[in-house]
Every structure is written in C-alpha cells, then in structure tokens.
Write a protein that binds this DNA or RNA. Structure first.
Lengths: 207, 207
DNA sequence: TCTCTAACGCAACCCGGGTCGCGTTAGAGT
DNA sequence: ACTCTAACGCGACCCGGGTTGCGTTAGAGA
C-alpha cells in the first residue's frame, strides 16, 4: 500500500522499468542528501535521473511518493542491533545508532527528510511507520536477551523499552529543537534501562 | 525574531493594525482546526478574516509565518502544571496533559499543525522551540518540589525528567505513528520518575 | 523473429499561489 | 482640527509545479 507500482509485482518488471526505478531512487536519495526535504522537487529528481518528469509523476505521484519508495528500500536494509552483553549498554548503543543516523552528514539529511515527509503526507507516513515497526521488532531481541540473563524482569514489554530509549532523541531533533549528542543518547538508553528494571514496562496479566 | 512586525513594537500599533492582527490570528486558528496544516493557505485565512491577502503576505510572509505568530500567542497562555503532592503522579498528569493537547478535537489539529509547520519552516521551528523551552521551565517545578520532598535525588536535571516524561508521546504521535492513550501517558510519566529516582538524570559535578 | 502493449518521452497547456505598483484609509502627533 | 505617513485594499500580473493527449520505444510472450 505504501508505494504502488513500485514493487516487483508489476506487469512488466523487466529491463527498462527496473532501470527507471533504480535511477529515480538513486536520484531521490542524492537530491535529499543535497537539498533536504525542502528542495526535493519532482522536476529536479527527473532531471538528475534522466527520466522524464511525466514518467515520475505517473509512477510516484509526487515528491512524497518518491520518499515513500526510498523508505521502503531503506527498510529492507539489514540493521546491526547491538549485542554487547549488557542490556544497558545495548540500549545506549541503540540510541547512539539513532543519533548517528541523523547527524551523519551523508545519512542525516535523508533521514530527516523522511520524518518531515511523514509529518504531512499519508503515504510517506505509512512507509515510515512500517519502517519503525520493523526496526522495533529487530531491536526487541535486546530485551529478550536481558530477560534471559536476569537483567530485566520477565514480562517486560520489549517494544516499550526500545521506544523509551530512542524517543528523547526524536523529541529533541524534531519537536523541541534541542541539541543531541552522545551524552543525550547515553542518558536515554540508561533511562530506558532503569525504568524497565524498576518494572514500569512489565505487562500486567490482569489487564 | 519569530514573527517580525507582529509584536507591539511596531511604529503604529493602534486600532486598525491591532484589529487586523487579531482577525488574522483567529482565522488562522479556525482554519487550522478545520483543515489542519495541509489545508492552511494564506488565501483561505485572508478570506475568512476579511483581510486582503496582500496584507497577510506583507505582514506574515507565508503560511508558516501565520503559524509562528499563533504559536507566540499560545506560548503566552498560562499552563496548569500539575501539583498532586507526588512526583510520579505529577509526571503522569503532565504526560496526560500533553496527550490531551493533541487528541482533543478542538486543540488537537492546531497542535499537530504547529509541529508539522516547525518541521518545514525555520521561523515556525524557532517559535515552537521557544514554546517548548517555556513549557519546560514551567514544568521544572515538579522536580524541584520532588527534590524538596526527598522523592528524587538532589541535583536531578529537571528539564531532562520532563523531556523523558513527554518524549514517548511525541515519538508515537509524529514518528512511529503508534496509538497514544492514557496508559501510554501514565507509563511515560512513571518511566521518567523511575529513571530519575535511579539517578540517571543526576548532574555529575566532575563533568 | 514477429507481434502487441505496457511503459516512456515529449511539448503544450492549465491553474493557483505568490508578487507588484499604485491608490486609499485611518490613526498618531501636534 | 489638520497633516503626514504607515498600513491596508485592490486588481493585474508572473511563474513554476503539475496535468493532458498523443506519438514512440522496448521487452514479454509465442
């Protein structure tokens, strides 16, 4: 549902169509990295990719469709979930990973653009939500391992721990506009661990 | 810096100018509540307010300028910081307040529009950041009282506690797109309290 | 190799947000 | 009361993103 006519289920997925999609996806990421979400126009992407703008409009609809497609691609990439042997340092490392994804000069603009697009377009939002759902599933193993080690109480809601570990970073980046550094990431990871250890995220069976 | 030529420092702040500003501000909030950020155009605001669109463009620049101005107004409104006698329930109540601000059918669309605008426009972002800075200062008293009562360790970073209490709500609302309810708000408040109690937000003097 | 059609290229066109120049009005100062 | 000018109203205009109709190409199937 995220980006129609962009998955290999199309009637004619061969040669030219695939080349067009690849060229447009690459151009989208390049434009995003260079000008951010503000400067992402269908015309620029069309010019850079060598694909006519009419074709881009037909297959992706608008700039948000381009982002949704690029986001689907990004979601499929593997993600190095930390495994340091300690839940607290795993969560700190997780937060640092998020921090790096937005401050890295190459990945940062595109990542920010994804969020910006999701804020005001339904298709981009759906793609971003799917992206985060997948990342949260991947990261849940951190909590699973911690419970097995006895670091966290059994019945701890893994997704909630992960959310708590990364939420302050997104809050600073996109809401309050406050700076984000490694210390912030470390505190967020430690706070999530402390709350989990205190049993705040334990599922209640009576509910 | 947020909204130039909208503060009472203008050369001619009297009668007509003030009426125009009030009419435009009211129309902006009404349009925001009805159509959200997506449907906020200068033309619609001009038509609703009875002010000519050229005038709106001259004084507010664009749609984001309108939002920045409305945000400045909202920031000046008093805010009922919870005082229940317990830090944990104060923080839960604080999170519920945020939750209510975005789910309320009247306030919600405008609040969401503020965030959406801030993601796109620097002026709106500056206004939103000022708004949050003020709210965080107001809410810091919760931690101050808690420290006096001995509920939290002295030297606890009040702003960090407040951020942790509200960040998961914003994360769900604008990033991951997951549902937000009172239970989520309560967990966020309790998590912030648990982390603070564990000393995660204690300022280190050696730094 | 031949056919058929999905997908693409192309240029003209439309449309609405945003701008410009000028005349008018109202309120601040005296 | 009178003046002076900041602020506003007004309509024409510009411009670029997005659309439309049609001709062309390439690749899937036989």
């Amino acid at each position: 549902m995220s980006a129609e006519a962009s998955e290999p289920g199309t009637v004619r997925p061969g040669g030219r169509t695939a080349r067009t999609r690849a060229a447009v996806r690459e151009a989208t990421l390049a434009e995003l990295a260079r000008h951010g979400y503000q400067g992402l126009t269908v015309e620029n992407v069309a010019a850079r990719s060598g694909v006519h703008k009419t074709t881009v409009y037909r297959r992706w609809g608008n700039a948000e469709g381009l982002i949704a497609d690029a986001l689907d691609l990004a979601a499929e990439e593997p993600w190095p979930v930390p495994d340091t042997g300690s839940a607290e340092s795993d969560l700190r490392e997780l937060a640092r990973l998020v921090h790096g994804g937005f401050t890295d000069p190459e990945l940062g603009p595109a990542s920010s653009a994804f969020v910006a697009a999701a804020v005001h377009d339904r298709a981009a939002a759906a793609a971003l939500h799917a992206f985060f759902a997948r990342r949260q599933r991947d990261a849940a193993v951190i909590v699973t391992r911690a419970v097995e080690r006895g670091e966290l109480p059994s019945g701890t809601d893994a997704a909630e721990v992960v959310r708590t570990a990364v939420a302050p970073l997104y809050y600073r980046l996109f809401i309050s506009g406050e700076p984000v550094d490694r210390d912030v990431a470390d505190r967020a990871g430690s706070a999530a661990f402390a709350a989990a250890r205190a049993g705040v995220f334990s599922r209640r069976d009576d509910a």
